[in-house]
Computed example of a mutant assay.
Amino acid sequence: MQALSKIIFAITATASLGFTGCQKVVKPVLSTPTIEMPTNQNIAQKPINQFNLEGKIGVKTPQQSGSAFYTWVQDQENFDIQFNGILGLGKTIIIGKPGEVSLNSSKTGLITAETPEELLERATGWVAPITHIVDWVQARPATSNSQIQTDSAQRISQIDEDGWTVNLSYNDNATLPNKLILKQQLEAGKENRITMVIQNR
């Protein structure tokens, strides 16, 4: 009887070890999706900066004003902007990638800088928040410090950010704006104003 009990115990213990071994093999396979999912979610949450715009832009500062037709091709952090007739510079091309931006026109020749804002100010004397405009034309704020207002369709209609107030207008039921008015308040009640009309996307 004791021998039979020992045999039953040995079989039970062996079976238990076998099941435990199976569990150890299965666990890593089950845990793999849990590790990968956050990575995939993070990739999906990154903003996509991919667009091709055409339209007209007007600039008015206390010192000068002017307008131009433009094309703007944005490919993530790289961009190519062309202006025709801007403030007497003639055709102007701005090409940029992170940390390196160049402007070329018949009047100024080739100018380089680290940011498009610095480059445009050196060439034309006026300031435009080009880096932020990449987000604004897509109806979203550029930083977490912005204040926004929405219209009756819950689209962003105004963004206050980094000293600029941006008013966005939409065509009918469109989800992206066709017109942006950027205003930067200066001393003595003066302002810089940029009107950007988007005719084609």
Rank of each mutant, 00 (worst) to 15 (best):
S5P: 02
K6Y: 04
T14D: 01
S16G: 15
V25Y: 10
K27F: 03
P28I: 02
P28D: 04
V29C: 09
V29L: 14
L30W: 05
S31K: 05
S31T: 14
P33S: 06
P33V: 12
T34G: 08
I35D: 01
K46P: 05
Q50R: 10
E54V: 05
P62N: 00
Q63K: 10
Q63M: 01
S65A: 15
S67P: 01
S67C: 02
Y70A: 15
Y70H: 04
T71Q: 09
Q74W: 05
D75H: 12
Q76A: 12
Q82D: 04
I86T: 02
T92I: 05
P98R: 02
N104E: 13
N104G: 04
K107R: 03
I111T: 10
E118S: 14
G125L: 07
W126E: 06
V127S: 12
P129D: 01
I130M: 07
T131K: 07
H132A: 15
W136Y: 04
V137M: 06
R140K: 12
A142K: 07
S144E: 09
S146V: 13
Q154L: 07
R155K: 11
R155Q: 10
T165A: 12
V166C: 11
N167S: 12
N171F: 11
N171S: 06
L176N: 10
N178M: 08
K183G: 05
N192R: 13
R193H: 03
R193A: 02
I194T: 06
I194F: 07
N200T: 06
